[in-house]
Simulated assay, not measured.
Amino acid sequence: MSDGSQEEDLAAAWGAALGQEAAGPGGGAAPDAARVLNQAEIDSLLGFDAGPGGREEAQTGIQRIIRSGLVSYERLPMLEIIFDRLVRLMSTTLRNFTSDNVEVSIDSITSLRFADYLNSVPLPAMLGVFKAETWDNYGLVVVDSPMIYSVVDVLLGGRRGTAAMRIEGRPYTTIERTLVERLLGVVLADLTAAFEPLSPVVFRFERLEVNPRFAMISRPSNACVLVRLRVEMEDRGGRLEILIPYATLEPVRELLLQQFMGERFGRDSIWETHLAEELRHTEIVLDVVLDEQTMPLGAVLDLRVGDRIALGVPPGAPVRLACGSVALFEAQLGRRESRLAVRIERALPREGGGRAGRGGVAPAAQAEGAPQAEEVPA
């Protein structure tokens, strides 16, 4: 009996508490006695932290549940520039392709898992599978139903100012598939041109599918980059979505991590010209090497003033011009007026910047007026 009385007392206490919370500010009972969450409880449920020191790690509730399905990926700044270049190219090529006023814009660039995207593709749609020849991997271009009917209407001479007619519940005809394949060929050609400044690659159209299950080009859990493009042709238009797995972009990942893209990815022609001009004015020292010998250290220490070192080359043998340890030219030693001079005969091949030695030097004709001395004073 004691347990039953305790449960009754607890239930009565809960009822009194709920009645107090449901009562209005004036003490009157509210018409609806349901539990109402205050703002702090709502913020806690949604994962918002109103405090100044709140951190993302402490967020809970619905936001934490939603974020658990997102893909943490490395930001690729150069990829955004490439897609912006793609939009500019497509705006021009689609105008020529449709002979109509076409505007292309980027709706979003997001990252998600491959299986999540396939499950969210709005059907009916056409999924074009393309292959990156250089990178040996695949990607997807998805054309939604409004875009398909708009392209068919424009290419077959539909009147301007009228929305494209949509006939649901039937498969796409051969004519519609052929026209969409032509559209995908134009888009892939622009995508190839957009990647050209970064890395030469060819995107080749493989096949066209209408069932997402037949367009499995990656593992369901792999991360992908999704670009949603909006194409507007006056009152008609639709969406193009380009899906590229990160595995496809892996060969050029280092290039995509660049922060900016100039004419040639940051190459400064002004600095190159200035450096070349300054190098031309740089002074270097050229040594005329008559001969090189290897002597014991003791013999070098015993040398005195007046000693003679016999050179191991005959009179008139070619000499070498070297800059430091790099042999540059083969020359003949002679005299011009009152000065010794050398006449360059040929340039020597540079093999790893080795020391200027005697090996491999072919003798040349003796220059007129060259000294005949076989010994020079030390």
Rank of each mutant, 00 (worst) to 15 (best):
Q59T: 06
S91P: 05
M78Y: 05
F48S: 01
G19I: 00
L37G: 01
R85G: 10
G24A: 07
G19P: 05
Q59R: 10
G24H: 11
I66S: 07
Y73Q: 14
A11C: 07
G51A: 03
G61N: 11
A33T: 01
R35I: 00
L89Q: 10
M90E: 12
I81E: 01
T60M: 11
P52V: 00
R75L: 12
N96G: 14
R35V: 00
A23W: 02
I81H: 01
L18C: 11
V71C: 07
G19D: 05
T93Y: 13
R64P: 07
Q20M: 07
L45W: 08
G47V: 04
A29Q: 03
R85C: 07
S44I: 13
F83H: 13
L70K: 04
L10G: 02
P31T: 05
A11D: 06
P52H: 04
R35G: 00
E56C: 01
L37V: 02
R75K: 15
L70P: 09
W14R: 06
E8F: 09
I65E: 06
L10H: 05
E56P: 05
L37Y: 09
W14L: 14
G26F: 04
I82D: 07
L46R: 02
L94W: 14
Y73S: 15
T60F: 10
D84K: 12
T93A: 10
S91M: 11
R95P: 02
E41H: 07
D49V: 15
L37R: 09
D9Y: 15
I62W: 15
L18V: 01
S68W: 14
E74A: 15
L86R: 10
S91E: 10
D49Y: 12
G26T: 06
T92L: 12
A13K: 14
V87M: 12
G15I: 15
A16W: 13
R67D: 08
S72Y: 13
L45K: 07
I81T: 03
A16F: 14
G54E: 02
A23M: 02
L89N: 08
G54P: 02
L79N: 04
G51N: 07
P77I: 05
A50S: 07
M90H: 11
Y73L: 13
G53T: 05
A22F: 01
A22G: 06
L70R: 06
R88L: 08
G27W: 11
E8G: 08
G47P: 09
A58C: 03
P77A: 07
E8T: 08
G19L: 02
L46C: 04
F48D: 02
N38T: 13
E21L: 00
A22E: 00
A50F: 06
A22T: 01
Q63T: 12
L46A: 02
L94N: 10
R64C: 10
E57C: 00
S72C: 08
G19H: 05
P31L: 06
L18N: 11
A50C: 04
